[in-house]
């Protein structure tokens, strides 16, 4: 009998497993991971570059909700995550670094409204 497989079995017995127990343990997500968008509306200058460069046309420039219209009179990007391919070209093109992609990857939802990232979350 060859000794190789037995050696391998003993090695694997004392090895850490490749997987983690998910809800309690989470794999560390790198800083560059492209997840859910975040808009810093005070920095946004409403140039619309993000809407122009988006390959999937997932970004639409919309007005702020009525209560905030006085403070934010221009149009601001609304991201449809259902269409988004998470390429982060909008982040690269933004001249004021207002639109960024966060490391949040937990995007599953039951409501269609939750798939939109609005300029002001009411």
């Amino acid at each position: 009998m060859k000794i190789g497989p037995v050696k391998e079995v003993f090695k694997n017995l004392f090895k850490k497993p490749m997987t983690v127990m998910f809800p309690e343990e989470v794999v560390e997500i790198p800083e560059r991971n492209r997840g859910r968008h975040h808009l810093d509306i005070d920095n946004c200058i409403s140039c619309g570059s993000c809407a122009k460069i988006c390959p999937n046309r997932a970004i639409r420039m919309i007005e702020a909700p009525p209560d905030f219209k006085e403070k934010y009179p221009k149009t601001y990007p609304q991201v449809d995550l259902g269409k988004c391919c998470f390429c982060a070209l909008c982040e690269d093109v933004c001249p004021k670094d207002a639109l960024t992609l966060t490391t949040n990857v937990f995007l599953a939802t039951f409501e269609k409204e939750d798939t939109y990232v609005n300029p002001i979350e009411v």
Binding site: I29, P30, R32, N33, C85, A88, L89, L101
Partner: peptide, 20 residues
């Protein structure tokens, strides 16, 4: 293969798709 995908995630921000 997953170890290599972790490196891609670190560098490009995506495990499988580097998005250009």
């Amino acid at each position: 293969r997953d170890y290599i995908l972790d490196v891609f995630n670190l560098i490009t921000g995506g495990r499988v798709y580097p998005a250009g």
